[in-house]
Amino acid sequence: MAWYIKWAIMVIAAAIGLGGYNGIPWCKMGIAEWAYWIGAIGTIGTLIGTIWLATSENRRRREHALSTARIVIAKMQFPMIQTALAALRISNTLEEYQARIPTEQGLIQRMPQKWKNLGDELSAQEYWSADELVALLALDRSKAQFIAEFQSQILFVSKQLTGISSSERTVPQIMSDVQRAIKILRGAATSLSKIGEHLSSDTAFS
């Protein structure tokens, strides 16, 4: 709770107390009235105590969630960098293959195993779990969402590359798949690098 909120509560409580002291004829009250007021004051005190305990518990949970998120970020940093580098490297390899296919006779027939190898390399990266992304929500909800989306995109490309077969798809279809894979991987690599830098900066932990 911010200091100015505490001061505001104290001022309001003092004003209510002063108004009650001056406005209520205490000397004329009987036993029943005193019992009523004592009960009312006790109820108010209980309510204030309950609210204070609830806010304290919320603060404790929030601090615990932030601490957990920071630990998760430290654990995610290296896999995120490695995944971004792998995505960029594989996109460059795909671009090289894409440039060679129209000029090298028979290359397309030799490519399925190469596609599969690249897809397997992508799927073998160390990714982050759903629990880790949930923990990250305490720091930055949008970044956790973006990381999950980029992971899904990379795994989609991995599955696509693994399933490419020259006997089932035409050369234009394969070229289109490769071009889309290059675009997805480069976008994911760039975005993951930027997100990693942002999450590791001091402003992310403020």
Rank of each mutant, 00 (worst) to 15 (best):
M1R: 09
W3T: 14
Y4L: 04
K6H: 07
M10I: 10
V11K: 00
A14G: 12
A14K: 09
I16L: 14
G17P: 01
G17H: 11
G17D: 10
N22T: 14
G23M: 03
C27P: 10
G30D: 12
E33H: 13
W34M: 07
G45P: 06
T46E: 11
L47E: 13
G49R: 07
N58E: 15
E63K: 10
A65H: 15
S67W: 09
T68C: 15
V72C: 03
I73E: 00
A74D: 12
K75A: 14
K75Y: 15
I81C: 15
A86Y: 04
A86V: 04
A87N: 11
A87P: 13
L88K: 13
L88V: 15
L88F: 10
R89K: 14
L94E: 10
E95A: 15
Q98G: 04
Q98Y: 02
A99R: 01
A99W: 04
R100Y: 10
T103I: 14
I108K: 08
I108S: 02
R110W: 04
R110Q: 12
Q113A: 05
Q113H: 03
W115P: 09
W115T: 07
N117Y: 08
L118Q: 00
G119S: 08
S123N: 13
A124C: 10
Q125G: 06
Y127K: 10
Y127F: 08
E132S: 06
V134P: 13
L136N: 05
L136G: 05
L136D: 02
A138T: 04
A138W: 00
L139C: 05
D140H: 08
D140C: 06
S142N: 14
Q145M: 11
A148K: 15
F150E: 04
Q153A: 13
L155K: 03
V157C: 10
S158G: 03
S158Q: 08
Q160K: 08
G163I: 09
I164D: 06
E168Y: 13
T170W: 05
T170M: 00
V171W: 11
P172W: 00
P172F: 00
I174C: 02
I174S: 01
V178N: 09
V178T: 14
I182P: 06
I182W: 01
L185T: 09
A188F: 02
A189N: 05
T190N: 12
S191A: 12
L192W: 02
S193P: 00
I195Q: 01
I195R: 10
I195A: 05
H198I: 15
L199M: 07
S200E: 00
D202N: 11
T203M: 07
T203C: 03
T203N: 10
A204F: 09
F205C: 11
S206C: 05
